[in-house]
Amino acid sequence: MFKADNPSIDPTDGQSIPVLRYSTDDLVPEDRYSTWLLREWPRREQVYRTEPSEPFNTRWESAQLGEVMFVYTEITGMRWERRQQDIRSSEFDPIIINLMVDGLAQGDMDGRPFYEPSGTLHFHDLGRPSLHVSSASTTYSIIISRPVAQQAFGPLHDLHGLVVPAAAAEMLFGHAESTRRALPRLDIMSAERLGRVFLELAAIALAEVRPKALPHVTSEKLLLQRAGEEIDRRLGDGKITIADLCRALGVSRARLFAAFHEEGGIHNFIARQRLERARAALADLDRAEPIGNIAHRLGFSDAPHLSRAFRVRFGMSPRDYRVLVADSLADITPE
């Protein structure tokens, strides 16, 4: 993934995990930024358009851990921008998980504002534009190719600029810190396993904050919802006809009936909604609407019609239900 430009490598016996290092410490201050900008490490091509916000200095360490590039960075304050034309001219478009150990980054990720204080992390898609500023900072970065990221995290469209708070990011920070300390003594055979742990912990952190996918809604379910809202709106108008509903919803009778199949049919649904509306009216003791008025307003032929249907549904008459509500309120009303 990266091309080294004469980095120093930890002394090894040929079996340890190589750690590549880059630093501007030994350069005169006025040459540090220009030298870093023209470096060929970690990549020959420039990834961001950058502008220092203070005297520049930086230190980097990186190790390839299987399918994951693990990077530790100390860097002074900077403005970072990646434009659409930069993306078109580059084949470098991984997903980067940036762990802010110390510092602050904030900006805009292709229309999504983000704010990343110390202890949090954010996902950065280099295949999309971005503009952000960072203070002097210490970070860990986990750089993953798109195919590997898709396999680990699923769809990538919602990741760019997604910030994971400290509580959810804690395990990933712990693994990054312990991995950096342990790298000098670890056998190269451990590299791939370490990388897999990074992917698993990142997936766990992401699952805590990623919005859950909305359940698939069929056209029949949408029609049922629309029809239910239309019926509820018309309940106080008396008679509700199938023809009126079909016209209002722009559907055929067959489609409307099919949508209410699991509800026991549209007529049963309307009857239940009328009775629920009647029960609510009966419980409104302050208004004390006459039972005959309720029956007429909700489309029952008369009060006895409402009474028969109400008794079948709720096991008592409308009058008995109203008395029951009044008694219940009396029991809980302080004297």
Rank of each mutant, 00 (worst) to 15 (best):
F2C: 02
K3P: 01
N6W: 05
P7E: 04
P11W: 15
D13T: 13
V19W: 02
V19L: 12
S23G: 04
P29V: 13
D31K: 14
Y33C: 01
W36V: 01
W41Y: 12
R44L: 13
E45Q: 15
Q46N: 13
V47G: 06
R49Y: 02
W60D: 04
S62A: 15
A63V: 05
Q64D: 12
Q64P: 04
G66E: 06
E67Y: 04
V68G: 03
I75K: 06
M78T: 02
S89W: 08
S90K: 08
F92D: 07
D93C: 13
P94N: 07
I97S: 01
L99D: 01
L99C: 09
V101F: 02
G103V: 00
G107V: 00
D110R: 00
G111S: 07
Y115K: 08
E116M: 06
G119H: 05
H122D: 05
S135R: 05
S137R: 13
T139D: 03
T139M: 07
I142P: 00
I143V: 15
I144R: 00
V148K: 07
A149F: 05
Q151T: 13
Q151F: 10
A152D: 07
L162A: 07
V163N: 03
P165M: 13
P165A: 12
F173Q: 01
A176V: 05
E177P: 00
S178M: 14
R180I: 03
L186M: 15
L186Y: 06
D187M: 07
R196E: 14
R196N: 09
R196P: 00
L201C: 03
L201K: 05
A203R: 14
A205L: 06
A207M: 06
A207L: 05
E208M: 10
E220S: 15
K221A: 15
L222A: 11
L223N: 05
R226S: 14
I231M: 09
I231W: 03
I231F: 07
L235S: 11
L235Y: 08
L235V: 12
I242D: 07
D244R: 15
L245P: 05
A248V: 08
L249F: 11
S252M: 06
R253T: 14
A254Q: 15
L256S: 12
H267R: 15
R272Y: 04
R274F: 04
D284Y: 04
L285T: 11
G292K: 09
G292R: 10
G292E: 12
I294T: 10
R297M: 06
G299L: 04
G299A: 07
P304Q: 09
P304H: 05
S307I: 04
G315K: 12
L324P: 00
V325P: 01
D327H: 12
L329P: 03
A330T: 13
